[in-house]
Design a binder for these strands. Structure first.
Lengths: 140, 140
DNA sequence: TTCCTTATTGCAGTTAACTGCAATAAGGAT
DNA sequence: ATCCTTATTGCAGTTAACTGCAATAAGGAA
């Protein structure tokens, strides 16, 4: 719990409170190798913080996404996962088999800029999920 | 029920069966002004097809999305909606207030082409949801 | 250090989304 | 027109996601 100090500081500076629940969840997300579902986060977090509720996990993950500290990963079903990643990227998901490919954000940068200018929205660099058929599933 | 013959024909030609449930749901989606949630589709479809179950609605919507006849619209919460639209577009959703803006597909065309070439995936022209803060919510 | 305000959490209950399996019916074959 | 195969549907039950409200505790003020 000493590695996401910068993230917790960000929260504190923006007027949010640092709670054990948030610290633990940030820690888990920060050290996860892949994106995690709320259930997975809950499972892991319960170990170091027994008594934690799933509700809090849902709310914390959504909170982190809203504040931009975590990214939402949409997998095409109505479940999602969250992750913290230093490397800005998006996902391309096969609608058939679920295979995921990472897309570096630079490829989408031009489009993002264009959209910001034409809509006035401030785009989050959160993950976009593109959908398609992977090479394997194309020959069904 | 005479207006989505082309869609039902598409299904039949591809070896899928045409059922009253599918016809009704196709009809509703085809005539909806906006995207509809499964619950909304169920509500409307039940009128002309009493006895229809929500399960079937969920499965049919997912089926239509898989076959490419309908598009999935992701709203940032873990619910989605579906729509049938002749006009290829995506959505830009405000993560704060939920406001949606349509993005014509042409703007994303270059990126799509690039991704298809570099990944081998065959991209679906289904809706991408971009997220950000709308001009109003930027001054919170 | 103690008190106070109010953001967060936990609890209990609700709604949404999904699954397995037996029953039904679409559409081709006879 | 009738039968047959098997894709779809409905049912019952399960899991996931969300909500309102009272209880708790973070962090600034006294």
């Amino acid at each position: 719990m000493s590695c996401e100090v910068n993230l917790t500081n960000q929260l504190r500076e923006r007027g949010f409170r640092i709670t054990p629940q948030r610290s633990v969840i940030l820690h888990i997300l920060g050290h996860a190798k892949a994106h995690l579902t709320p259930a997975e986060v809950y499972q892991q977090a319960s170990i170091s913080l027994p008594g934690l509720t799933e509700t809090t996990v849902y709310r914390t993950l959504e909170f982190l996404a809203q504040t931009g500290l975590a990214q939402t990963v949409f997998n095409g079903k109505s479940k999602y996962a969250y992750e913290i990643s230093g490397y800005a990227h998006h996902h391309l998901v096969c609608r058939q088999c679920g295979t995921e490919v990472e897309i570096p954000h630079v490829k989408a940068e031009a489009l993002f800029k264009e959209l910001q200018e034409s809509t006035g929205f401030q785009l989050m660099q959160n993950h976009i999920s593109f959908f398609g058929l992977c090479p394997v599933c194309q020959e069904d």
